[in-house]
Computed example of a mutant assay.
Amino acid sequence: MQFIMRILCFFAALFRHWWQWMSCAIGTLLTFYIAETNQPNAWIAHAIVVLAVLFLLVATYGAWSDERSKVEDIKNKCRTLEASFDERKPKFEIRIGQV
């Protein structure tokens, strides 16, 4: 069940990034180009599919990058916490001599 939840969370993050890219100005510029040059329907379909796949690859990197930065933040917090614990360790000293 946990695996399914992870997959669903990944696809939700992927969709968020992909939707952001699909609604950017590049799609609008492509639409204006198509309208201006009067391209055939097959060309339009191929251009949109190529753009969607390209944006899917970029969105995959975006989702990975978000998760990577979260992991690095956690690691940095752990290092800071370990350093503060190291500073608070008791420092014992053993002296051998007369009692």
Rank of each mutant, 00 (worst) to 15 (best):
A59Q: 02
A25E: 15
W19F: 11
K70N: 02
A12G: 08
F85C: 15
Y33M: 13
M22V: 00
T37Y: 03
A47L: 02
Y33T: 03
L57H: 07
F55H: 04
Q20W: 11
I48H: 08
T37N: 10
R16K: 09
N38C: 08
K75R: 14
F3N: 10
D66L: 01
C24H: 06
A59L: 07
L57M: 10
V49K: 01
P90M: 07
F85G: 12
L81G: 06
S69W: 05
L81R: 08
A45D: 01
P90T: 03
L30T: 05
Q98M: 13
I48G: 07
C9Y: 11
W21V: 15
I26E: 11
K77S: 01
S69N: 09
V53T: 10
K70C: 05
A12D: 13
S65V: 12
D66S: 03
K75M: 07
I44W: 04
Q20S: 12
W21C: 10
Q2S: 15
I26T: 07
D66I: 00
I34C: 03
P90R: 06
M5K: 15
A47E: 02
V49R: 01
Q39K: 05
L81T: 14
W19I: 09
N41H: 13
H46I: 00
G27E: 00
G97Q: 05
S69I: 10
F85S: 01
D86L: 15
G27D: 01
I34T: 07
E67T: 08
E93L: 13
L56T: 07
S84N: 11
G27N: 12
L14C: 01
F15N: 05
I94W: 08
Y33A: 11
N76D: 12
T31H: 06
N41A: 15
A59K: 09
Q20M: 08
E67W: 13
E67G: 15
Y61D: 07
E93W: 04
E67I: 14
T28E: 06
F3G: 06
R95M: 08
T37S: 04
W64Q: 13
G27I: 00
Q39F: 06
F11V: 00
T28A: 08
E82K: 01
A42H: 12
S69G: 02
Y33G: 04
C78G: 11
G27Q: 05
F92M: 06
